[in-house]
Amino acid sequence: MLWKIDTQSPQPLHEQLAGQVRRAIATRALVEGEKLPPAREVARGLGVNMHTVLRAFQTLRDEGLLEVRRGRGTSVAANAQPVTRHVELARSLVSQARRAGLEDREILQLVEVQL
């Protein structure tokens, strides 16, 4: 998989990285169960701090796209591909709601009502 960041982009580096993994999973460039390279290597290859990469991995794990196992590395979660769609929907919901002036608490409430 190709990782690409732009150091001058207004988007934070960890978000750029997370976005690339999401796209790779959605387009099946990364398949379920596939191992990701160690964060240390990605960081060295891109010349960024390792914590930036780890932060991206953590976000993706929280979204249910990655599995992070101690000593066994990071891999794409079992049903990550269908999940990427919902992650994208949630992300666009949050960004649109914020743009409309909603508070984070109100956005949470919006979702909770639907549950």
């Binding site: 998989m1 690409k4 150091t7 001058q8 990605v42 290859g45 960024v48």
Partner: peptide, 9 residues
């Protein structure tokens, strides 16, 4: 671009 960095694995 000069500010872009790439890594492939």
């Amino acid at each position: 671009s000069p500010t872009e960095r790439v890594f492939w694995s």
